[in-house]
Design a protein around this nucleic acid. Structure first.
Length: 212
DNA sequence: CCCTGATTCGC
DNA sequence: GCGAATCAGG
């Protein structure tokens, strides 16, 4: 009754251009558009002549996040349900708790382990910094900057949208609906994307060096 | 194996 | 113009 079988309408081309500029991969774009394969997307990208996507382009388009636009953003279930994470984030062979930081003023809190919130008991009263984020003072500024950069482009996936190959780094406060998972491509065999792996898996030597 | 983009070429 | 098949690479 409509649409003569998926074609490159202006609208779809716009989405393609926008996502490509944001640095999304051809497969991600294809998935978003639906009805086309990544090959189709790549082919179109080339025909549009916007092949080599350089850094600057990526810095222009990033929509500010909770932008109230009718854009085809992936819906996100805002239900803070106890539902067992299909892809249980934790239980990773993650970091060693670093040596008991003799930095007196640093309360021996959590290691840099993200996804540690416990949804079953009391939902964290929004306002308490319970959510993930490892103690920044243990991470190099470069690594943190990289993570923040990635988070701005995160795919904001809901729990149910995570797969074995999406970054499961939680972002935001799980007690609110401003909570989602990074969703960028995860490193093979790892639970997080490159940037978040860097934050989560700190080589002991690097940590040691940093606090010398 | 998972994934990436690039290219070719029949349609 | 389109995109599957294929290639080259991480």
């Amino acid at each position: 009754m409509e649409r003569q079988i998926m074609s490159w309408t202006d609208e779809r081309v716009e989405t393609l251009k926008r996502m490509w500029a944001e640095g999304q991969s051809a497969s991600q774009i294809a998935k978003e558009l639906g009805g086309v394969t990544r090959n189709a997307v790549i082919g179109k990208v080339h025909r549009l002549g916007l092949s080599n996507r350089t850094e600057e382009a990526a810095e222009v388009a990033p929509a500010p996040v909770a932008a109230p636009e009718p854009a085809p953003q992936p819906v996100q279930a805002a239900a803070p349900k106890p539902a067992a994470p299909a892809a249980k984030p934790q239980a990773e062979p993650h970091l060693r708790v670093v040596e008991p930081a003799p930095k007196a003023e640093e309360p021996a809190d959590e290691p840099a382990a993200p996804v540690a919130f416990n949804p079953r008991r009391n939902i964290i009263p929004a306002g308490q910094p319970l959510p993930p984020q490892p103690s920044a003072n243990e991470i190099s500024p470069e690594t943190l900057a990289s993570a923040r950069e990635i988070e701005k482009r995160s795919r904001k996936l809901s729990l149910m949208e995570l797969t074995e190959r999406t970054c499961k780094w939680p972002i935001g406060d799980p007690a609110t609906d401003k909570f989602w998972f990074c969703g960028m491509p995860s490193q093979a065999g790892k639970p997080y994307c490159e940037a978040h792996v860097s934050v989560a898996f700190q080589p002991m030597s690097a940590r040691r060096d940093r606090r010398r």
